[in-house]
Every structure is written in structure tokens, then in C-alpha cells.
Nucleic acid binder design. Structure first.
Ligand SMILES: [Zn+2]
Ligand SMILES: [Zn+2]
Ligand SMILES: [Zn+2]
Ligand SMILES: [Zn+2]
Lengths: 145, 145
DNA sequence: TCGTAAATAGAATTTATTTCTATTTAGATA
DNA sequence: TATCTAAATAGAAATAAATTCTATTTACGA
């Protein structure tokens, strides 16, 4: 189990329960975003008894603590993704295979400038997500179902 | 009633029913995004009998036809907004009064470049929304509840 | 080892959204 | 203008994601 994650849990005052660690373990192994129900299915292979509310609660707590990022998907369902990159950045999300890749580009400064100058408003946060087909998915024309 | 909207409905093969026109009328009058239920409440002042499914169906049809834009909100609820600006652009959303304002800035080209060059992927769409306090709301410290 | 706050299971619930069916209506056509 | 038909609607019912609740269990500091 990843040492950094252990430390992260500590600093969030979250106990290192077997279930919580397993959820993280599942997400670490994936480079795709997962719905709570998908995490649940994977968890059921490891635990004989595991409730869906436990999955929801943990994913949300971990996202609030910054350990996971929440994907704001056009389908409006919940998805979570464990991103190792701690700096501010955005993501390219493959809508076919659900792989997530980091983007370095972020227009925060330009946005800030425009909002301040033209709208006389104040930026609190910005959301940017790019959807598309990753390298593999745009080469093979096979679309996952 | 706005002539352009009439024409837009025609081109989408959507009938100009009183309810549909009233929904548009309500949205034209607002510079804020509205949830289906909020539109419904306003509609109930105009029609003695008006079903919520009618609201949902119309908002969705109009959004699919490009007449309305759907706000992808972090709270994952549905919101719609009638934006007069037909060109590609993004929005600044006031989290206090829910006012929506157009932004001219869009990093599409830079994103496109990075995804193509570094990730070898293909961009299908991008989502950008800026949240903050509009001019009025950042001046008056009164936060709506 | 013990005590306690945190975490969990499992059932029940909430609520936004969608589906279904019978009825009505807009708007084209004769 | 009267008629016709596909589109639109009402209202009830269903769906399903997400959350709440309560009793029980557990992690972990003292
Ligand atoms: Zn892919
Ligand atoms: Zn950014
Ligand atoms: Zn405002
Ligand atoms: Zn853009």
C-alpha cells in the first residue's frame, strides 16, 4: 500500500480502515474514472459484506480531502478518479475507455483578467474538463459499449 | 414574443405551443439559470394545469436544438439558461445570485494543440465554467440564501 | 488493555428525473 | 373553414442514484 496515501489519510484524520484502504487500492490500480457502483462491484470481490453507503461516504470524504478528484461528467453521474498530480491542473477524459490524462494547459490567468476587467466580478473557482478520444481509442475505431 | 425564437422552433420542427412559448418567455426574461422545478413554479402561475414532465421534455428538446444551454453544475442538478450569443463561448456564473454572463475567453486552441501533440488524442468537446461573484454580489456583501 | 469517536451494515428513504398511456392540440391540407 | 395526423400534454406511476438512519463494530490513542 502506497505510503503517501497513508500519510494523506492521517493528515485528514481519516482512519486507515481496511475498506477505505481497499477503495484507494482499487483506484490506484486504475487510470480510469469509476462510478461508486463500479467501485462497489470491485469491493464485493474482496469483502463478503460491504455496503454501498460506505462506498459513497468514503469516495466523498476522500474527494473533499483532495485525495480523489470528482469528475463532472456530462451525464451528471458521480465519478471519482485518483490523480497523483497534486498541482492545479485539468484533465482530458476519454469518453470511450474512461481513461483520464493530465493537461498542463489552464487558462486561469486570462479568465481572471477578463472577469476582473470586463465583468468587475470575482473568480472563486473554475471548472475545465476536456472530453474526447484518447490515443488508443482514436486509432482503433472500436467503441466500447 | 421574440421572432427569432419562433423561427428557431420552426427550423427544429417544434410546434409553437402555448406552454413551450411560455417556457421560452420565462427564460428570456431571466439572466439566471433555472432548474426545471423553478420553471415549473413560474409556469404554474400562468397555467392552471401544467405537468412537470412537460417542463423537463421541453427544456431538454430546446437544449438539444441549441436554443437553450444546459449548465453543467457541480451539484449535478439540471439547469438551463437561454443564451442569446450563438457563437462558441463560456460562462461566468455567480454562485450567489445565479446570474450568468458571457466570457469571450476560451482556450480551445491551446487545448487542441496539447491533446494532439502530447496525448495523441482527439478532442470532442470541452467544458469550461467559471464560478464566482458577479459585480453586484462582490460589492454588496449580502449573500443570498 | 481500554475507552471513545469514527466507521460500517443494512434497511429505509428521498428526490430528481423519466416513462407510460390516454387525451388534447397545432398546424398542415383539402 | 373543416378535417386529419403527428406532436404535445396531463397525470399517475416508475426508476434509480444518492442519502439518511440506527444499531453495531472497529481503529487507534492513552
Ligand atoms: Zn480511451
Ligand atoms: Zn485551471
Ligand atoms: Zn451575482
Ligand atoms: Zn471553449
Amino acid at each position: 500500500m502506497n505510503k503517501d496515501l497513508y500519510v494523506a489519510l492521517k493528515s485528514l484524520n481519516l482512519k486507515a480502515t481496511p475498506k477505505r484502504l481497499a477503495i484507494l487500492d482499487i483506484l490506484v490500480a486504475e487510470s480510469v474514472y469509476l462510478a461508486p457502483e463500479e467501485v462497489w462491484r470491485k469491493m464485493r470481490k474482496r469483502f463478503k459484506s460491504i455496503g454501498l453507503p460506505t462506498i459513497y461516504r468514503n469516495l466523498e470524504d476522500l474527494a473533499n480531502g483532495g485525495v480523489l478528484i470528482k469528475i463532472i461528467h456530462p451525464d451528471r453521474k458521480l465519478y471519482y478518479y485518483l490523480c497523483a498530480n497534486a498541482d492545479h491542473h485539468h484533465h482530458f477524459i476519454c469518453i470511450n475507455c474512461k481513461k483520464v490524462e493530465d493537461l498542463s494547459y489552464c487558462g486561469a490567468e486570462e479568465i481572471e483578467k477578463e472577469v476582473k476587467k470586463n465583468l468587475k466580478g470575482r473568480v472563486i473557482s473554475h471548472l475545465m474538463q476536456v472530453f474526447g478520444l484518447c490515443k488508443d481509442c482514436s486509432v482503433s475505431r472500436t467503441i466500447a459499449t
